[in-house]
Amino acid sequence: MEPQYRWLAELEQTFDALVEESEALIALARHQRPAMWAFNGEASFDWLSRALTDFWYQDGQDGRATRDWVGVVAADETLMAQAQAVNRCKEIFAEQLGRIRKHYPRMIADIKATLPFRHPELHDHLRSGGMARLHLKQCWRHLPLAEAPVARVRLAWYSSGRSIKRLSVAEVAEKLAALDNQAAHIQLQYRQLAGLPDGEMLAQVQRQAPLMRANLFYREPLEDGRERRALNIALPLFVPHDDARLPQLNQPPAQPPEKRSRALRGDSKLESEPFIPSLRVYRYRQ
Rank of each mutant, 00 (worst) to 15 (best):
E77P: 02
E121D: 15
F217K: 05
A183V: 00
L48I: 08
A27L: 05
L136R: 11
C139H: 05
N250D: 10
R88H: 14
Y218H: 10
R88D: 13
R64Q: 13
A148W: 01
D68G: 01
H241G: 06
F15W: 15
L270N: 07
Q204F: 11
V172C: 11
A9E: 12
L136W: 03
P236M: 05
R133N: 12
M80Y: 07
P253H: 05
K112A: 04
E2M: 07
S272F: 03
T78P: 03
R265C: 09
L52I: 09
P236S: 05
Q96Y: 00
D242K: 00
A184N: 09
E91Y: 07
A38N: 03
P197T: 08
Y57E: 13
W47K: 06
D224P: 05
P274E: 03
L155C: 03
K259A: 13
V70I: 15
A74E: 11
P105R: 09
Q204N: 07
A146C: 09
W7Y: 12
Q82W: 04
P253F: 07
A29E: 05
D110R: 09
R260K: 11
C139Q: 01
P247Y: 07
N181P: 00
A81D: 12
M36A: 07
A85V: 06
A65Q: 15
L196G: 14
R99A: 11
V72Q: 06
R228G: 01
P144M: 10
P210G: 13
G63S: 14
P210Q: 07
D124V: 10
Q189A: 12
P210M: 07
L115Y: 04
H103V: 08
G71R: 04
I186M: 07
L155M: 15
N250Q: 10
D76G: 13
A234V: 11
S49W: 02
Q251A: 15
K137Q: 15
G129S: 13
C139E: 06
N181F: 00
L246I: 07
A75W: 00
T114M: 11
P116G: 06
R152C: 08
Q32A: 13
L270V: 08
F93R: 09
P274S: 06
L97Q: 04
V169F: 02
R219G: 14
C139K: 02
P105D: 08
P274L: 11
P274W: 01
A24M: 00
E77Y: 04
C139T: 04
D243K: 01
E174Q: 15
L193N: 06
V86A: 10
A151M: 04
E77D: 15
S163Q: 14
R207W: 06
